[in-house]
Design a binder for these strands. Structure first.
Length: 219
DNA sequence: CCCTGATTCGC
DNA sequence: GCGAATCAGG
């Protein structure tokens, strides 16, 4: 594989979006994690918070046992590491379900029970969902933008809507189908047609584009 | 062990 | 320029 303009562009975007080198490599395909890192550096991409970098030039009495190359200690003024702002989407997602909490008479006491371990159970109409679960690390920071307004985000997935991904993780407009699911499946009828074929895929991920012909017969 | 990014250096 | 090998921290 070679670094075509497109691939370099993808690398740039994903790197800047905070994807790990492994993820980028996997996504691009045909390259190793090392290749991605190497390329990123050659491109002059800003290194993101590395697990192994908090270097202070001031005190360096440490022996630093260089086995191979006694590298001349270069204290290049590294630009401030980009803090990679995790945009927590304070999404006021309208959980419109039919379990609409009926307004409880104000004077009626809240019924709670205490479960094993001492935690307090909430009563049915009492769910307070203000706590947005911290998105798993590695997720691309949410970008609250108008373009995303009607896109189904990861956080909005549930059992009733199609989870078919559109676009690629890390790209700004990545989202999910969001249509009503084919009952019993995670996708809508249309995408079930894509997901379930005569035989499920092997270990591969993306056969379609880069195969002029020669690959397994694709309809 | 796993993961991460950084660096080196032969090609 | 490329990337495997290696390093080193979490």
């Amino acid at each position: 594989m070679s670094w075509t303009d497109e691939r370099i562009d993808s690398l740039r975007k994903m790197w800047e979006a905070g994807q790990t080198a492994s993820q980028i490599a996997e996504e691009l395909g045909g390259v190793s994690r090392n290749a991605v890192i190497g390329k990123a550096h050659r491109l002059g991409l800003q290194s993101r918070p590395s697990p192994v970098k908090p270097n202070e030039p001031g005190a360096a009495p440490a022996p630093a046992p260089a086995k191979k190359a006694p590298a001349p200690v270069e204290t290049a003024p590294r630009p401030a590491p980009t803090p990679a702002p995790m945009a927590v989407s304070a999404a006021p997602i309208p959980v419109s379900t039919d379990i609409s909490a009926p307004a409880r008479p104000a004077n009626e006491p809240i019924l709670r029970s205490v479960g094993p371990g001492g935690f307090v159970r909430q009563s049915p109409g009492e769910q307070q969902p203000p706590i947005t679960p911290a998105p798993p690390r590695r997720l691309v920071p949410a970008k609250p933008s108008p373009e995303m307004a009607d896109k189904t985000s990861l956080l909005e997935l549930n059992d009733k809507i199609c989870k078919w991904p559109l676009g690629h993780p890390g790209e700004p407009d990545f989202h999910f189908c969001g249509d009503k699911v084919n009952p019993g499946f995670p996708y809508c009828v249309e995408h079930c047609g894509h997901a379930y074929q005569a035989q499920l895929p092997r270990r591969d991920r993306r056969p379609p584009p880069p195969l002029p012909f020669g690959g397994p017969r694709v309809r």
